[in-house]
């Protein structure tokens, strides 16, 4: 129950020549994760902060579940939207448990028992054993642990929408990756509609079902990671997503993009190993190298029907000609 629609949303700060966000329109599907990426100054954070009205738009509409947020009471609006930021912003004078429950407390209507139970549930969910962490203070936690609490706090009232502004940007690489995995795990359970600002394209590919690329306040492209790789709207997107990077293409492009029908292998019939259609080129290439087979037979992952063959040559062709053409493709798992 939480689809977010942007309709020509614009923010122009007084005394600036171009809008920070310029007539951006797109939809975020209910229960999906949409990543906002772009260079600094692209307007991605401004766009995010207009959703819970920490910034008021100059013109345009943001509609959540059919209701224009600009016509809502901002305080009521914010209470049903989770907000997670890079600096975390835990209250230093409150314990971890108090920090988590504060969102529920200010909204009111919770009994003490329900609050206590909810806090324990959430700490458990974000991987902090409640008995150990409940009574601690923020400064006694590492950066990664603090952000787990930040996540728990945002989830406390079970909001349908989460706004996340580079939540893992300040963490070291290993902790960041662990937190990304945690978020994916949690998202599988809670199914929030997430709007997530990131400057890390790797992160965007990993977490996002949709990626919105912004540049100088304008929405340049909206699409799945594969869309962005295979069909970048312009050079900016191609550079941003690393469309030139062979490894990234191998990692994300599906095997069905590199199918061929008539090969030497096809003549040999069933001798070659079979492979499912939702695999990536990289997986296929590794399999080819590993088995030393001349080709792989690709089967549809649902119907088991044989779709074609894949060879090192066909992979090579797909990568060198990746841009420009688009074959019909099935849903891509990342």
């Amino acid at each position: 129950m939480a689809k977010i629609s942007f309709h020509a949303i614009t923010k122009q700060y007084p005394g600036t020549s171009r809008p920070a966000v310029d007539a951006v329109s797109f939809d975020v599907a209910e229960g999906s994760t949409c990543m906002l990426v772009g260079t600094s100054g692209s307007g991605k954070t401004t766009l995010l902060r207009m959703v819970n009205r920490l910034i008021e738009p100059t013109s345009g509409e943001i509609v959540i579940d059919g209701k224009n947020v600009l016509q809502e009471n901002p305080i009521a609006l914010r209470r049903r939207i989770g907000y997670v930021i890079q600096q975390v912003g835990l209250f230093p004078h409150l314990t971890i448990a108090e920090n988590v429950r504060v969102t529920a407390e200010i909204a009111g209507g919770w009994t003490k028992q329900r609050l206590d139970k909810r806090v324990d549930e959430l700490l458990e969910l974000v991987g902090l054993p409640p008995a150990e962490y409940r009574k601690r203070f923020p400064r006694q936690l590492s950066g990664g642990q603090q952000q787990r609490v930040g996540l728990a706090r945002a989830l406390a009232t079970d909001p349908a929408i989460m706004l996340m502004d580079e939540p893992f940007g300040a963490l070291d690489a290993i902790t960041r990756e662990r937190m990304q995995n945690e978020l994916l795990r949690i998202q599988r359970d809670v199914q929030k509609t997430i709007l997530f600002v990131s400057h890390d394209i790797q992160e965007a590919f990993k977490l996002g079902e949709q990626i919105a690329v912004l540049d100088q306040g304008k929405l340049i492209q909206l699409g799945t990671p594969v869309d962005l790789l295979a069909q970048p709207a312009n050079d900016f997107v191609r550079k941003l997503v690393g469309g030139d990077s062979i490894l990234r293409q191998l990692e994300y492009l599906p095997v069905i993009d590199a199918l061929e029908q008539d090969t030497v292998a096809s003549a040999r019939g069933g001798d070659v190993p079979t492979f499912l259609s939702d695999a990536t080129l990289l997986q296929a290439m590794l399999k080819l190298l590993e088995t030393n087979a001349p080709a792989l037979a690709v089967q549809d992952k649902d119907t088991q029907q044989q779709l074609g063959f894949i060879t090192l040559a066909s992979i090579n062709r797909e990568i060198t000609h990746a841009h420009g053409h688009k074959t019909e493709r099935t849903e891509t798992a990342i």
């Binding site: 819970n52 920490l54 305080i75 009521a76 609006l77 914010r78 209470r79 049903r80 907000y83 930021i85 600096q87 912003g89 209250f91 004078h93 504060v102 969102t103 200010i106 909204a107 706090r153 945002a154």
Partner: peptide, 23 residues
């Protein structure tokens, strides 16, 4: 930052003062 975090989680001005600023 903390004032804004308070605001972002839906605190009204009085709650921001009593729960975030004063402490």
């Amino acid at each position: 930052l903390l004032l804004e975090v308070g605001k972002a989680m839906g605190m009204n001005p009085r709650q921001v003062l009593l729960r975030v600023a004063l402490p």
